[in-house]
Amino acid sequence: MAIKKIMLACDASATTPLLVATIEKAISAQDKNVIVFATTSPHIDDKILSEQPSIVLLAPQLAYLKGEVKAQTDQVGVPLAVIQLNDFNDMNGERILQLAERFMYR
């Protein structure tokens, strides 16, 4: 099976690497063939084209960009979801991975 890519779009903050690490921990614990990487809002367009993610996850603070980003992801056939605030605040990598998988494996 091909490697799936989760693109996490966040504001540039100290929490972004921590969130990526918790998602990577959940991926590793479940022995999934998935990678996760983060980008900031100004680079979403470029990363969608260059990295060809399997899904784009927006951090809750970027939910206001959903319509704009959805137009981009629809053009390339990539699903988009917004991370629940509770999961983001709790750094719940397992639940965020589950969210991504619901869309990646449709």
Score class of each variant (00 low, 15 high):
S54M: 01
G93A: 08
Q75D: 12
D11C: 14
L80R: 01
S41W: 07
L80D: 12
V69I: 14
A29I: 14
N86P: 13
E24V: 06
V78K: 00
I83W: 08
K5P: 04
L57N: 07
P53H: 06
M91A: 11
D87S: 06
K66Y: 15
F37V: 02
E68I: 10
A71R: 09
D46S: 13
Q72N: 09
E101K: 05
A38Q: 06
E101V: 02
F37T: 01
L49Y: 01
Q52F: 03
M104D: 00
L99W: 03
F88W: 12
A59L: 12
L57I: 00
I35R: 14
E51P: 03
C10P: 01
E51R: 07
A81I: 02
A21T: 06
N89H: 09
P17E: 03
D11P: 03
I3C: 02
T73S: 12
G93I: 12
S13Y: 08
L65V: 12
L62A: 10
A14I: 15
C10R: 06
R106Y: 06
E101P: 02
G93P: 04
L62I: 15
L19I: 00
F103K: 05
Q75E: 13
P53M: 00
K70P: 11
E68R: 15
L99D: 07
D74Q: 08
A81E: 07
I23V: 09
L97M: 04
R106P: 02
A14H: 08
E101I: 04
Y64M: 14
N86E: 06
S41L: 08
L97N: 01
S41Q: 14
V78P: 03
T22W: 01
I96F: 04
A14R: 02
L58T: 10
A71K: 15
D90F: 08
I48L: 03
D90L: 13
L58V: 13
F37K: 10
E24Q: 13
V76D: 10
C10L: 11
K5D: 13
D45I: 09
D31P: 06
Q75Y: 01
N92C: 10
A12D: 09
A26K: 03
Q98D: 14
G67I: 10
Q30F: 12
S50N: 09
M104L: 05
L85S: 12
N89A: 12
D31I: 11
T40Y: 10
Q61C: 14
Q72C: 13
S41Y: 11
A9R: 10
I55R: 07
P17W: 08
A9P: 00
Y64N: 15
K66W: 15
S54H: 06
D11G: 03
S54K: 04
R102I: 02
I3F: 02
K32L: 03
A38H: 05
E94M: 09
D31C: 08
E101A: 01
L49W: 04
M7A: 05
V69S: 13
V20A: 08
D87P: 12
A59F: 13
Y105T: 01
